[in-house]
């Protein structure tokens, strides 16, 4: 993740290239993380570089307005409407943008569909890339060393940590998000859900089922 205006290359050539610091500037902040953040916020506020009310607005956005219920609506609609599902699999960015789900960390979306043959699972081994407009801020486990290290090598053992066992014949396809493309898993629709409304189906679509570490809930 990076700056909020990542589309630009940033400042001109007078800015030094990133490099290895012998003396890391961050070491000058307090070592306790809560105090460290407080100290940084205080300095930035005194310099006039941040407006604490803007920080409150950012936090409110990700606590209350953007989260996995967005993705659940996309999945529920895909389950109910084959044309919508086909369009989603063809060009997810256009389709979810049309539902108002676009923005930071969701600029290039791809949807991948689970079948009896293939179970999809998403990870970012190099950092923690995640489709924010559809799923919100990633859970702690998604950002953990254990998930980043293990998901690509032993996805079934990771699924076991979530209590999920796949049928013998199902292959796993793990998507390592190494670029700015963000992946949404469309889980399999549970049996016994014919005739359910979009809202009813949404309740069956868990966050983890859209990352591929879970399955949709049976009613």
């Amino acid at each position: 993740m990076g700056s909020a205006l990542d589309k630009d290359q940033g400042a001109g050539n007078d800015v030094p290239m990133p490099h290895d610091h012998r003396d890391h500037p961050h070491d000058r902040l307090p070592s306790d993380p809560a105090l460290r953040v407080r100290a940084l916020e205080t300095v930035l506020t005194q310099k006039g570089l941040i407006d604490p009310a803007a920080l409150d607005e950012i936090i409110d956005t990700y606590e209350n307005r953007i989260g996995p219920r967005n993705g659940a609506r996309v999945v529920a609609r895909a389950w109910r409407d084959p044309d919508f599902c086909a369009a989603l699999l063809d060009d997810a960015t256009a389709v979810v943008s049309g539902m108002g789900y676009y923005g930071r960390q969701g600029e290039h979306m791809v949807a991948v569909q689970n079948t009896d043959e293939t179970h999809n699972m998403v990870v970012c081994t190099l950092c923690s890339c995640y489709p924010w407009p559809l799923l919100g801020i990633p859970p702690t486990w998604y950002k953990s060393d254990a998930y980043r290290a293990r998901a690509v090598r032993e996805p079934r053992k990771v699924l076991a940590d979530f209590g999920v066992t796949l049928p013998e014949g199902t292959a796993v396809r793990v998507w390592d998000s190494t670029a700015e493309v963000r992946y949404l898993v469309v889980p399999q629709r549970p049996e016994g859900t014919d005739g359910m409304s979009e809202e009813q189906l949404m309740a069956l679509v868990t966050r983890d089922s859209m990352i591929g570490t879970g399955l949709a809930v049976s009613p």
Binding site: M1, G2, S3, A4, L5, D6, K7, D8, Q9, G10, A11, V15, P18, P33, V37, R38, L40, E41, L44, L49, I50, D51, A54, L55, D56, I58, I59, Y62, R104, I137, E180
Partner: peptide
């Protein structure tokens, strides 16, 4: 606060996502 401070500072456009 850490997330919000990082995003707010990014808005100056002094670095891109790859630099960060």
């Amino acid at each position: 606060r850490a997330l919000a401070v990082t995003l707010a500072c990014g808005a100056f456009g002094k670095w891109n996502i790859d630099v960060s």
